[in-house]
């Protein structure tokens, strides 16, 4: 009997944390189902590009994806923009309380109406700011042209800093930073390092102001049509892959930051408590500003999870 094929497509290289986690899932899933399931990986957007993959999944052209969380807003699930809000997650523990708890489950539930089943949240990491000027306080970014990926929340965030947000495709960023079309950008350290952006940015400040993550999703019709035992095995495999994904993402970011420091091309600055407080103060109002889009209740329920861990 022919194995069930899962086409798992993603837009990054195979040796990135997400790529490695996808490979781990393939191993675990194929082993646990004793070959009844075959996972075909398509890294690097070889089949579908960033902008196409969600539609391809809904059409059933691929079965599994791990898009960035920012992709769900345009799909009509604006609630996912909560992940883009600055300083909404004080640390990783709060983040995982959200993604692995009821709030995360309810978010994933909203995808069902779009023909999508959400299986897991995978971390990339918290973002740092980079530019060609030293950044200690938000005012240092005044009037600076900051590249963002297309997002109303990130636009509001950069405007709150007094910066001039510029929407630009990821593929164009390196050259734009190098020539000075834009002055700076925000990235988790691993993206900054693998895209060699530190070569063209003089300063990095560890602001940890925002989060970048992915959701592993499957075509709902395909998922519901799987034999129950296989679905259970795949769910387990996904759980283990998620732990692995989050662990290596953390390591990768730490290593990347070390490597950036070691390269000597970029000054890496850690904020003092007082400076950090100023960033938080400047950026937190964005949460209020975006209530209308994302939902007041949702933002509050995330803040409640933070409060449960002692953050107010």
């Amino acid at each position: 009997q022919n194995p069930i094929i899962i086409k798992f497509s993603h837009v990054v290289a195979a040796d990135t944390p997400k790529g490695k986690a996808a490979e781990r899932f393939k191993e675990l899933a194929e082993k646990a189902t004793k070959g009844r399931v075959k996972v075909e990986l398509y890294p690097n957007s070889t089949l579908y590009k960033d902008k196409e993959e969600l539609e391809a999944l809904q059409l059933g052209a691929v079965q599994m994806l791990a898009p960035s969380l920012a992709k769900f807003g345009p799909l009509g699930v604006k609630e996912f923009e909560v992940f883009d809000l600055p300083y909404i997650f004080p640390n990783r523990d709060v983040l995982h309380r959200v993604t692995e708890g009821p709030v995360g489950a309810s978010l994933m539930g909203k995808l069902e109406a779009k023909g999508i089943t959400g299986l897991a949240f995978w971390d990339n990491g918290f973002k740092v700011m980079s530019s060609n000027v030293p950044m200690k306080v938000p005012a240092d970014l005044r009037a600076k042209k900051m590249r963002i990926q297309s997002s109303k929340v990130l636009d509001a965030q950069m405007r709150a800093l007094g910066a001039n947000p510029q929407v630009m495709a990821f593929s164009e960023v390196y050259q734009a930073l190098q020539t000075g079309v834009v002055d700076g950008t925000e990235n988790p350290p691993s993206n900054l390092y693998t895209q060699k952006m530190h070569e063209v940015q003089k300063h990095v400040t560890i602001t940890n102001h925002g989060y970048l993550g992915y959701a592993v999703i499957v075509n709902k019709k395909f998922w519901d049509g799987l034999p129950a035992d296989i679905r259970t095995e795949l769910t387990n495999a996904m759980k283990q892959s998620t732990q692995y994904a989050n662990a290596i993402a953390q390591i990768e970011n730490d290593n990347a930051l070390d490597a950036v420091k070691k390269s000597g091309k970029t000054t890496v600055y850690s904020l003092t408590d007082k400076e950090r407080a100023e960033w938080v103060k400047t950026l937190t109002p964005v949460q209020k500003e975006m209530e209308g889009r994302i939902g007041k209740d949702l933002i509050q329920s995330v803040n409640k999870e933070a409060a449960a861990l002692g953050f107010k």
């Binding site: 345009p74 799909l75 297309s150």
Partner: peptide, 9 residues
């Protein structure tokens, strides 16, 4: 669907 473009919505 409620799909919109990302900048112009």
């Amino acid at each position: 669907t409620d799909q919109t473009s990302s900048d112009l919505e």
